[in-house]
Design a binder for these strands. Sequence first.
DNA 1: AGCATTATGTAGTCCGGGCTACATTTCACG
DNA 2: CGTGAAATGTAGCCCGGACTACATAATGCT
Lengths: 146, 146
Amino acid sequence: MVAMHMVEQDSAPPDEAARHASARTARASALAQDYVEIIADLLAREGEARPTDIARRLGVTHATAIKTIGRLKRDGLAHSKPYRGVFLTEAGHELAQRVRARHLTVVAFLAAIGVPPQVAEADAEGIEHHVSDATLAAFERFLANA
Amino acid sequence: MVAMHMVEQDSAPPDEAARHASARTARASALAQDYVEIIADLLAREGEARPTDIARRLGVTHATAIKTIGRLKRDGLAHSKPYRGVFLTEAGHELAQRVRARHLTVVAFLAAIGVPPQVAEADAEGIEHHVSDATLAAFERFLANA
DNA sequence: AGCATTATGTAGTCCGGGCTACATTTCACG
DNA sequence: CGTGAAATGTAGCCCGGACTACATAATGCT
Ligand SMILES: [Mn+2]
Ligand SMILES: [Mn+2]
Ligand SMILES: [Mn+2]
Ligand SMILES: [Mn+2]
């Protein structure tokens, strides 16, 4: 048994566990975020968001997209009628806007510190889902002072 | 003044699909990375890596940890004998070192741009898995010139 | 209008990654 | 030593997120 002298060095397990739990939660909501972002973009640019187009942009089959859209509907983020294209609920639209803003900020930030554009786009697609408000704010400060 | 590149405004679907596919791949390997990182740390600090300790640090049940360790073994990253604690293969050890280095860099970088330490630790736990070599290099350059 | 093509939807499968419940083994200690 | 607590392992369930294969609806073209 070691006397407990060193206070801070030990990385208390509960904290670490909480961090990993956070990361798991973020991972779980990442897909929904990408979907609403894409749906919002399709609605804005094309006027409609068809499952096939959503699927193509994600690089998955239409069956996968349709099933996921079903979960979005279940979770109150989207709605649609058979064969008629997908729309966002108010909640879905708000989420999409937040997600889009974060996406743009992350990409811009990475580019600003010298990451090649292509890579910035690619990395951002994953990183964005793990950027907290505090970190996003830091990114924005950096961009402002650049 | 920024050079106006005006390259692809259109975000060609195949590229976007590839980016999402990349993010999916990264997401899929994230868990294994966290495991080997924790196992390496336990081995270094305690001399042994027990499933229960691994589970506690991740905030999951021991049953979950044991099943995941089974996948690590299947994938040639770890090995263990019944009731005896977990060890890393050469491949596992190498992965752990890369992962640890990246983790430290990401945390240091976030802290350097003004993210509060606690938040930096939390966000890094997810972000680290989506940081490519090019982005990691950019982080290191930033830290060097800071 | 009729038919071929495309889009949409459904069913069924697979694996990852979480859980609970229970069985078994190890180990500390009285 | 023995034995009870702790660790380990197993079984079985659940849901997410991917796929293929097939069925059905919508659409566009001749
Ligand atoms: Mn994304
Ligand atoms: Mn995005
Ligand atoms: Mn991590
Ligand atoms: Mn880590």
